[in-house]
């Protein structure tokens, strides 16, 4: 008896390809149904976000509610060291958020936000202080601004904005990477939840493709071009204005932390770039917005040359001692405000 021709038999041209398409569609449906916070939980869902968001994706949340806590997303890119906050906000809570780059991020227990919290708890134990450090390596003013937008629903009582000014190039590159990710063939492929999910799991398991495309030589070339710096300073100005506007709208006080540098030949900690960035930030001082002059504070604390090695690990990043100094000075600065008295 002859076998009838069906999709299960090999004699139909392209039967294998038809099956491939059918299997893909079945798995795609499964991915869409099962990859949902109701099924896999909020934490896993945000860990492997359904949008291909390596790098910074402005469309994705950076926090989520988990029971009576607020948790911050632990993606490879924005690793917020497992910070959580109580939800809803307790009456006597005072929430401070630090937003910045690697300088303010530093080590888990060697950053000024950490020291500041300790100092605040010692000085005023009656209040429930939280100082959440949401700084991330290599982010510039644009991404700091985008993150600030996302934390406004968490009712901050104070925001410390540390726009360091070194990562504007990274912001541009990240934005370009984001655009490229969603262009052309990739743009079509990433419409598939199955492909995104598998790409994320594969990337997680093999430590591949964490969204950070480093090209040191290109960065050096970009940094050597004065025209770029002019553009980057303009973008710091523009984004700082937007951040101040946002905080003013929500009546959230702001401390703008200035820049400091350790360079050969400098008597203090203020290079030409430090002065330029500080000049931009100072211009935004108004009621509820103050400027914290980092280079000046460092110099007051350690005017002698040996202070540089004590306070800085390299040209831009600070030692634990440097962070401790800034935390002490910030504490004084905070209580000089009427709103904290």
């Amino acid at each position: 008896m002859g076998r009838s021709s069906s999709i299960f038999s090999s004699d139909i041209p392209g039967a294998g390809i038809l099956w491939m398409i059918a299997l893909f569609l079945v798995l795609e449906v499964f991915a869409r149904v099962l990859w949902h916070p109701m099924v896999i939980g909020e934490r896993l869902y945000t860990r492997f976000s359904p949008v291909y968001d390596y790098g910074f994706d402005a469309t994705q949340p950076i926090w989520f509610k988990s029971g009576n806590r607020i948790e911050f997303v632990p993606t490879q890119y924005l690793n917020f060291r497992g910070h959580t906050l109580p939800y809803p906000k307790p009456d006597n809570a005072f929430r401070i958020f630090t937003l910045g780059s690697s300088v303010s991020r530093s080590g888990a227990d060697t950053n000024y936000s950490y020291f500041l919290k300790q100092a605040l708890e010692t000085e005023h134990p009656e209040r429930d202080w939280t100082v959440t450090n949401l700084s991330a390596d290599g982010i510039g003013s644009l991404r700091i601004m985008l993150m600030l937008q996302k934390i406004m629903p968490l009712s901050p009582d104070l925001v410390i904005l540390h726009v360091h000014g070194s990562n504007e190039y990274e912001d541009e590159r990240d934005a370009l990477y984001q655009r490229q990710l969603h262009q052309g063939l990739n743009g079509i492929l990433f419409q598939s939840r199955l492909i995104v999910l598998m790409k994320k799991i594969y990337g997680y398991m093999t430590l591949k493709d964490q969204g950070r495309v480093w090209d040191a030589e290109e960065e050096i070339r970009a940094n050597e071009d004065p025209a770029n710096w002019e553009q980057w300073l303009q973008s710091i100005d523009r984004n700082t204005a937007r951040m101040i506007q946002l905080c003013t709208k929500h009546q959230v006080p702001v401390i703008l932390v200035g820049r400091a540098e350790k360079r050969e030949g400098l008597a203090g900690f203020d290079s030409e770039l430090v002065r330029q960035v500080d000049h931009i930030l100072k211009a935004y001082q108004e009621p509820g917005v103050t400027f914290f002059n980092t280079s000046k504070k460092f110099f007051e604390y350690h005017p002698e040359p040996r202070g540089k090695a004590l306070l800085f690990t390299d040209e831009a990043h600070w030692t634990g001692e440097g962070h401790r100094v800034i935390a002490q000075q910030l504490l004084k600065h905070l209580f000089s405000f009427a709103f904290l008295k």
Partner: peptide
């Protein structure tokens, strides 16, 4: 592989295709 049942062949094609796209 071309002599295998179409369902298994389709599975192999899918793995090859997804490997190229994903990894």
């Amino acid at each position: 592989i071309l002599n295998w049942p179409p369902l298994i062949r389709g599975g192999i094609y899918l793995i090859v295709l997804l490997s190229i796209i994903i990894g």
